[in-house]
Design a binder for these strands. Structure first.
Lengths: 250, 250
DNA sequence: CGGTGAGTTGATAACTATCAAATCTCGTGG
DNA sequence: CCACGAGATTTGATAGTTATCAACTCACCG
């Protein structure tokens, strides 16, 4: 099922982007909005398991995730895989590659995706003509850096149980930001994904998640996870949570 | 010994910056150089152990490391510490805080430091008046993100021995870039720093480093480490090494 | 109905942490 | 000059955590 569908024409005009209406995103000026709209080449969809970008590639494209979940990962020569971070609606996909050149990680779809496509060689225009948007790109990069800092703290210094609690509360918060009114939030993950994120074996991950289940903090639903008690999960993880500053949507 | 000396007046004019002459850094146009020079407020020095920036602070400053080594870290409530990355000459210090607002990590000097000081509220001018420099800031952020990706892979999926090999070869390469002609390179680290970077206990770190020593790959010199065989170290780590693209120096 | 992927469990092995106690270096005060 | 203390490194013994192996259940699907 590893297919990436070819670009289809533009569908959602940026001015009516459903994401942009969410309180998590800052308002853009009409000028900014016009530029972003012109920056967008089209849309692309992908099915779960599809590899959007591969390590080593020099992609001509930069994307913004419009809907669905994806993740970034790296692998060692013998196949050990580490998931670096997750991508949710509103996240830029492929920025590292666009800015530096070659991709050093891969990106895979977790759920069905819709992506907005941009031409990476027009990034210059963005920085040149819209300094505010240029700053926004840096802001997003700094934000990603922060998440990675937290993940590093987790892998380096938290126990298996604390790590799991951190990851699930982190993902729940992120999901909540782009689905503020959802009655229930399901994280579209398998335990294998959790294991590859936490740096644990699949078996130990299962035993650890079971503990969280038994404590009543989460519930596992074949191929997805539901957070039942965010507060206590964050206490177990000793994690403050994400701040709720408005973010740019490019 | 936790003192941060107050800012002293400008000493090294950017046009004659010794770092800028190194092949690792890209040439700046006279215009760019003039702006950066005007962007610089002064210099600051710090002694080993001094905390330059603290978690939670809203610093008015942004720095570039002119000489010396520093590191970024986060701690859990009970004191467990995780070193996130190291900073060497040419690195921006405090960018995350400057772009987003509040610092979510601390920065500590590893050796005596000299820092160039910038006013963070003039970052707008940089993006507005010099898109190329704005892009450079993003480039540097993307570069940091890449290093963190590699560290995450290490903590998540490498064994203790592989992690140590990765860290020491990584630091040796970074040091080499800013000291291309040095006969010998010494990494100014204690084993405690290595432990806090690798997510290992100090005892196990010691035993692991001893193995690398016994293999003839590194040599430990109270408070510093010398890499003896970079090639084999990188083989042990299954690591490709850093690319040698020219980088901006702001 | 067989097959596949996901989740679960128990037994055992491997790795890493913790505890305790040395050694060593180096700067300081006597 | 030497004794002393602090920090860094080293080592062995033991405990705790996590990985690996093997087997099994369950839901789902062609």
């Amino acid at each position: 099922m590893n297919l990436v569908l070819p670009h289809t024409g533009r569908r959602v005009p940026c001015e009516q982007c459903p994401l942009r209406a969410l309180p998590a995103f800052r308002d853009f000026t009409p000028t900014e909005l016009r530029f972003v709209s012109g920056f967008k080449t089209g849309e692309m969809t992908a099915e779960p398991g599809a590899v959007i970008l591969s390590e080593g590639a020099h992609s001509a494209h930069l994307y913004t995730l419009l809907s669905g979940w994806a993740f970034r990962f790296k692998t060692l020569a013998d196949g050990r895989r580490q998931i670096l971070n997750y991508m949710l609606p509103g996240d830029l996909v492929g920025l590292q590659g666009s800015v530096i050149g070659e991709m050093e990680h891969s990106v895979e779809a977790l759920s069905p995706l819709v992506l907005c496509v941009f031409q990476r060689d027009r990034l210059d225009e963005l920085f040149g003509g819209h300094p505010g948007l240029g700053f926004d790109v840096t802001w997003l990069a700094a934000q990603e850096e922060r998440m990675l800092d937290n993940h590093l703290l987790s892998l380096g210094r938290r126990t298996a149980l604390e790590r799991a609690a951190y990851l699930l509360s982190f993902l729940h918060q992120r999901a909540r930001m782009v689905a503020p009114n959802a009655a229930r939030i399901e994280l579209p993950l398998t335990q294998q994904h959790v294991a590859d994120t936490l740096g644990l074996s699949i078996v130990h991950t299962n035993k650890t998640l079971r503990k969280l289940s038994n404590l009543g903090l989460v519930r596992w639903l074949g191929g997805a996870c539901e957070v039942l008690d965010l507060e206590r999960l964050m206490v177990v993880a000793d994690w403050e949570g994400l701040h709720d500053r408005k973010r740019p949507l490019i």
